[in-house]
Amino acid sequence: MSDCRIQLTINGQQTSVEAPPMKRLLDVLREDLDLTGTKEGCGEGECGSCSVRMNGELVNSCMVPILQAHGAHIETVESLAIDAELHPLQKAFLECGGAQCGICTPGMLMAATHLIAHNPNPSLEQIREGLAGNLCRCTGFIKIFDSVITAAAMEGSRTHAR
């Protein structure tokens, strides 16, 4: 199949790529746009390491053919910090020990961002549900829950955005 030209907005910047229409959004981000913060863990939509936001929805970028992302707004982990200023969730993950090996962290941060965008003060049960699609093998999730609760209480956890 020949390449197609895809227009999309990544982290607030308009861009276009030439890619096979079935190329995964994950691979376009990592290979064509050099945004390697988004990780592959399973390639089948189970682990959530490749989570990004697409038009405000949380998606597994390994399950999105790039054709489907034409015209879309994509937010990746690289969008969270503004210049040198970490996003409250990033600060909380650092302080609370929410990141260990770090490979699930970008996806986990995107899922948590999505959660807080919809629910600024989530309960523990809502956090468990909101992060259920993101697997972490290091932390047992406890310190991730702590991080999200801590971030939600911080100034600007919802408004911090480009």
């Binding site: 990746t76 982990v77 910090a81 970490l86 990141a99």
Partner: peptide, 12 residues
């Protein structure tokens, strides 16, 4: 704070 923590949460 974890030594390499900032690089990890930044996706770098």
């Amino acid at each position: 704070i974890r030594k390499e923590g900032a690089e990890k949460v930044l996706g770098r």
